[in-house]
Amino acid sequence: MNRQVAVIGAGITGMTAAGALSELGIDVILLEKEEHTGGHVKNWDRLFPSRRPAKEVLDFTGKSMATGVDIRCGSAVESIGHNKGIFTIRPVKGEPVNAMSVVLATGYDLFDARKKEEYGYGIYDNVITSAELETIFSEGKKLTTHQGTTPQRIGIIHCVGSRDEKVGNLYCSKVCCVTGVKQAIEIREMLPGCEVFSFYMDLRMYDRNFEELYFEAQQKWGVSFIRGRLSECAENPDHSLVLKTEDTLTGRPLKMTVDMMILLVGFVPSPETVRIARMLGLSSGPDGFLLPADEHFHDNTTTIPGLFLAGAVKGPACIVNSMADARATAMQVKSYLNGEMLK
């Protein structure tokens, strides 16, 4: 099967790129290893900072793909290679795809919180990840402890698997801070009687309206912020949790009992990305994410002509940035196909 462009990965980045390419009149195939498109975003309830339903974004992007994009789900890439400007992709099912250009949009994985054993995920009942909390929200369920009671106090733990040399990830995952603030608000919305404490090292409210959301969390929702990184956690016989941190602003160790703990898990390079990159001989940075040809001038291209990178394969990125990057990539692909690529 011959196509002009193959986009690998139907998360928000891949979908946006495929949609934009098809709007530019390019013949594009979108390969996704899972059974549905939407990637991580389809597990989200509402998005920061505006709290627009994630579904709206997916629907919009889906519409842009409605005409022209050949979507193949359940088509993980078994092998990929290139020869004389033609890429050949063998998916696990269906016929091989030949394409003149490939957009790699295989994204990221969430950090496995079990690697941060002292936080008790997978050991204590009432420790969940931010992704699990988001799923609870999106399924419209009520947030309860594992024992079925309504939590009276919840601790939100920032930087789990990010900015942590001890798990080998020195980088910041960028989106967890604002996610934590958003989720703190949503918990307070759902359970007005529940206290919410955020434990942070720094709050990185880097983008438009993020700081305002933080402001709102304090002013309107009474979320408390404690500057201290969680160092360990123990479980009481009633399955509540004892957090140990330092309240660095008073300079004293702090112990707090909470009914639930939410871990804001960061980004890690997805094994799928790593595998495909290895087949193509792409290089990655010390953080494991892929490197574009140049961070400023060729941030979507690679050393292989015709192969493009988009979104979180290059490192943590929020939805807005991933979508913008996907559209930029589409333009670059078009230039490449027209033979006008800026070298």
């Binding site: 054993e117 002292e118 008790g120 997978g122 050991i123 204590y124 360990e232 956690c233 123990a234 479980e235």
Partner: peptide, 9 residues
């Protein structure tokens, strides 16, 4: 072992 609660459990 306080940092490896699964051992204690």
């Amino acid at each position: 072992s306080h940092l490896t609660p699964s051992i204690i459990r």
